[in-house]
Amino acid sequence: MANEIFWPQDYVPGFADNFASNEVIVAGLTAAEIWPLLSHPAKWPTYYANSANPRFYDDKGPELAEGIQFYFETFGFPVQAKVTEYVPPTAGQPGRVAWHGWAGEEGSLERLDVHHAWLIEDLSEGRVRILTQETQNGKPAKTLATTRPNPMINGHQEWLDGLVSAARSATITTSSKP
């Protein structure tokens, strides 16, 4: 059985207002090669056009860590976020990172709350699995859930594709150095 995302109570898929799930399995990369591109938000805009202006609060960063707050813009939303899970990948153990993100004033109709989680795990025969899932609550989430084509599914697929491409480029660059 494959590893799965851990969900906080109010964000379990099927009970939240919106859910998106994207996954790729590719050969020739490892979780250790993917992880630095995901764990450093400043790198996101270099391979994912739907991410902008990442920054940390309280002189934290440049790498995510459990409990820290950060900011970025995506899908037209200014997202405040707090890391709720952070476990780098090790031999036999998948990498996990998740954050609670929000945009808009608490209690307002424009408020959007999300739980965005990633699981990066090495598989047999030199393959890596990258899973990203997000649940959302609030009126904007209900609108996104019925929008076609689905902007969350399409946007997160672009994130995965960019992540894989950036990791492949970094691997080629690293292996071609004298």
Rank of each mutant, 00 (worst) to 15 (best):
I5R: 04
S51R: 03
T146D: 09
S39L: 11
E121Y: 06
E4A: 11
N18K: 14
T146L: 07
A91N: 15
P149N: 10
N154K: 12
Q9M: 05
W159V: 07
T135C: 06
A65P: 03
S108D: 09
V114W: 01
P88T: 05
A81G: 00
E125Q: 06
L119V: 08
F15G: 15
Y57F: 15
P78T: 14
R129G: 01
P62K: 03
R111L: 12
G28M: 06
G95Y: 04
A145H: 05
K82S: 13
E73H: 08
E33P: 04
P149E: 10
N53F: 05
E125V: 04
G101T: 02
R129L: 02
D59E: 14
L112S: 06
A81N: 00
K177H: 11
E125H: 09
V26C: 05
G28I: 06
A49F: 12
V128E: 02
Q93E: 11
L123I: 02
A65F: 07
V12L: 09
T171Q: 15
A141I: 10
H100F: 14
F72C: 05
G67D: 04
G92Y: 06
I34M: 03
L38M: 10
Q136R: 05
S176L: 12
E73C: 10
N50K: 15
G76M: 06
Y57Q: 12
T173D: 15
P89V: 02
V24P: 04
P54F: 00
L160E: 03
N3E: 12
N53A: 15
A32Q: 05
N53P: 06
E66A: 12
G14F: 15
P36I: 04
V83N: 02
R55W: 11
I34C: 07
T174D: 15
I153A: 10
I5Q: 03
K43W: 06
E105P: 07
P45G: 11
F19V: 12
A31F: 07
H156F: 14
W159F: 06
A98P: 01
G14M: 14
T174V: 14
R129V: 06
H115R: 13
E110Y: 11
A31N: 10
T90G: 10
F6N: 13
N154L: 10
S108R: 04
F19A: 03
E125N: 09
L144W: 00
E110L: 08
L112P: 08
N18F: 11
I25F: 01
A91K: 15
S39R: 14
T74W: 08
A2E: 13
T46A: 11
P89S: 03
N137S: 12
H115Y: 14
T90P: 02
L163T: 01
I172R: 13
K82E: 14
P41Q: 00
W102E: 15
G92I: 12
N3Y: 07
V87E: 14
A167Q: 00
A145R: 01
A103V: 09
I68H: 09
G138D: 08
F75D: 05
S169W: 12
T84W: 00
G92S: 09
F75G: 07
L112A: 14
L123R: 00
A81L: 00
G92P: 07
L131H: 01
P140I: 00
W44I: 03
N18M: 13
V26P: 00
A117N: 14
L123N: 02
P13V: 02
M152N: 09
P88C: 06
A81E: 00
N22G: 11
V79C: 15
A91L: 12
D17Y: 06
G67Y: 07
H40W: 08
I130C: 02
S21N: 07
S39I: 03
